[in-house]
Each structure stands twice: as structure tokens, then as C-alpha cells.
């Protein structure tokens, strides 16, 4: 690599890093700015008097139940409950299913995967109308439970696919030994396969978590009250209503970004592997 090439490369990296981070950084700066600093035309890279007042409000230190902060706090709780429940249950069902497909060689497995892929292509909006109608008929609209069920259903194919392709690469011999020793299928799965599949479990886990945390259209249609509303929905509503209260709204935005960023940092390796897996292995 010659010198000019190296300079170009550095410039590109600086540009990408700058473009990726600036909007998020700027949001953060706005969220800790005081109102009067925001009106200034000449912006500084860091507010002269940073304030965390907006975060205090988002985390609901205010006593008023109907305050924006309290409502956002409730939707954060909803989002966390739903995302963790969905992640855990999806993984449990996906492990069993992947084992059935990969190790127990379930009959008709090719047809099953064909259908799963076919419906995977559907836009969620095609499902949302009939699902809305069914749920309204059985009175399960606006519930964390039904929203979680739908998220599990939507995430299962991906998780099953990641796990079964990982199982495929693991040797069968240890498991067979375990089964011969009287472990049974569940025992072999629990004692042998799961401990060996940690990377695949992390990968699919992060994805399921991120997709339930970030999902918008289904939650928009199916949730109506604070009982089940998720964070993205409340952000969207409040942003529309308090359009001009930038510091408060940007603080809420930053709060919604925290869990994904924390997870992505901790599980960075698995995240990248998981993203890449889908594409490189056809």
C-alpha cells in the first residue's frame, strides 16, 4: 500500500466514523443542552452548561402520573419486559426446533423450510390486518402477552435457521454417546449441544432482542394504552406532540438507543458474525 492510498483510506475511515456517529452525538448534545443554548445559530461541539434535567424527567422523577417522563418510563418497562421475554422464549423454542430439524431429521423438513422462507418475505403489514382482526375478536388487543407472541412467531424462523446451521457443523459423536448412555434427546441437547452452541445462541439472542426492541408497525397497530405500549411508539407520539421540546425528546431518543448500544458493545463479536452468517453462507 503506497502513501497516497493510505491517506485516502484514513480519510474514508474518518468520514464514515464521523457520519455514523455525528447524528447520535448531536442528539446527545441536544439532550443535555439548556433551551437557550439551542437557539444560538453558532453551535458548539459541547454545550457550555450541560444539564441532565431532561434525563431526570424521562426517568420519571416527577410525581405527576401523566407527565411525559412517567409515561416514557412505563413504556420502557413494557419494552424491556417484552424484549427479554421474547428473546428467552424464542431461544427455547428455536433450540428444540433446530434440534428436531438438524438431528432428528424430521420428515418433510425441506418443505417446512421452504414455507418458512416464503412467509419470511412477506411484509409484516400483510399480517398485521388479519392479526388485528383476530385479536380484537378474542379481546387480546393492547396486551403485552399477545404482542410478545407475535414477536416470537416473527423471530422464530431466523433463530431456528441460525441455530440449525450451527448444529450442522458440530460433531454428532458426543451426542450419540450421551444418548447411548441413557441421556435421552433432551439430556443430550441440554448437556452436550447447548454448551457447545453458545456463539449461535448469543447471535440469535441479540438479533431477537434488537428486533423486538426496535419493532414499530405491529406495536403501532396493536397497542393503544400504557398497559402495553412500547418505547418506540411512545417516542413517536411524544415527538409529534412536543415537537418543539427538543432537549426532552432527544433525551428520550438517547434512552431508547442505550440498550441496543450496550448489547452490541458486549456481544460485538457475535453480532458481526451473525450479520455476516446470513449472507456469506448461502
Amino acid at each position: 500500500m503506497n502513501f497516497a492510498h493510505k491517506i485516502l483510506l484514513i480519510l474514508v475511515i474518518v468520514m464514515i466514523v464521523f457520519l455514523s456517529i455525528t447524528p447520535i452525538y448531536w442528539t446527545f448534545v441536544t439532550s443535555i443542552s439548556s433551551d437557550k443554548d439551542l437557539i444560538k445559530t453558532s453551535k458548539s461541539w459541547f454545550p457550555p452548561q450541560p444539564t441532565f434535567r431532561n434525563y431526570q424527567e424521562v426517568f420519571g422523577l416527577s410525581k405527576d402520573v401523566y407527565s411525559v417522563g412517567n409515561q416514557i418510563k412505563r413504556t420502557i418497562t413494557n419494552s424491556l419486559t417484552i424484549s427479554f421475554a421474547v428473546t428467552f422464549l424464542t431461544l427455547v423454542f428455536a433450540i428444540l426446533a433446530a434440534y428436531a430439524i438438524e438431528r432428528l431429521r424430521v420428515p418433510l423438513r425441506n418443505y417446512i423450510s421452504f414455507f418458512v422462507i416464503l412467509t419470511q418475505m412477506l411484509p409484516p403489514v400483510i399480517l398485521v390486518i388479519p392479526i388485528y382482526l383476530i385479536l380484537s375478536k378474542i379481546g387480546l388487543l393492547d396486551s403485552k402477552f399477545s404482542l410478545s407472541l407475535i414477536y416470537i412467531a416473527l423471530n422464530l424462523p431466523f433463530a431456528i435457521w441460525i441455530l440449525s446451521s450451527y448444529f450442522q457443523r458440530l460433531p454428532v459423536s458426543v451426542e450419540e454417546a450421551a444418548i447411548i448412555d441413557g441421556c435421552g434427546y433432551l439430556g443430550a441437547l441440554w448437556r452436550v449441544l447447548i454448551p457447545m452452541s453458545k456463539p449461535a445462541l448469543f447471535t440469535s439472542g441479540i438479533f431477537v432482542f434488537l428486533s423486538s426492541w426496535n419493532e414499530f408497525i405491529i406495536a403501532l397497530v396493536l397497542t393503544t394504552s400504557l398497559k402495553s405500549k412500547t418505547l418506540p411508539i411512545s417516542i413517536s407520539e411524544f415527538m409529534g406532540r412536543f415537537y418543539t421540546n427538543y432537549p426532552l425528546m432527544t433525551a428520550a431518543g438517547i434512552v431508547s438507543m442505550i440498550p441496543p448500544i450496550i448489547f452490541a458493545s458486549i456481544f460485538q463479536r457475535f453480532l458481526v458474525e451473525g450479520l455476516a452468517k446470513g449472507a456469506v453462507k448461502e
Partner: peptide, 17 residues
């Protein structure tokens, strides 16, 4: 990690930003 930041943060928040 930096490049995927826009991809993993909630779409609603990035849209408003």
C-alpha cells in the same frame, strides 16, 4: 461497532434525529 450503530439503534429514534 461504529458502522452498525445506525442499524441497531431504533428506527423511530434515528428518523426523528
Amino acid at each position: 461497532l461504529i458502522y452498525v450503530m445506525p442499524y441497531i439503534t431504533p428506527l423511530v429514534a434515528t428518523s426523528w434525529v
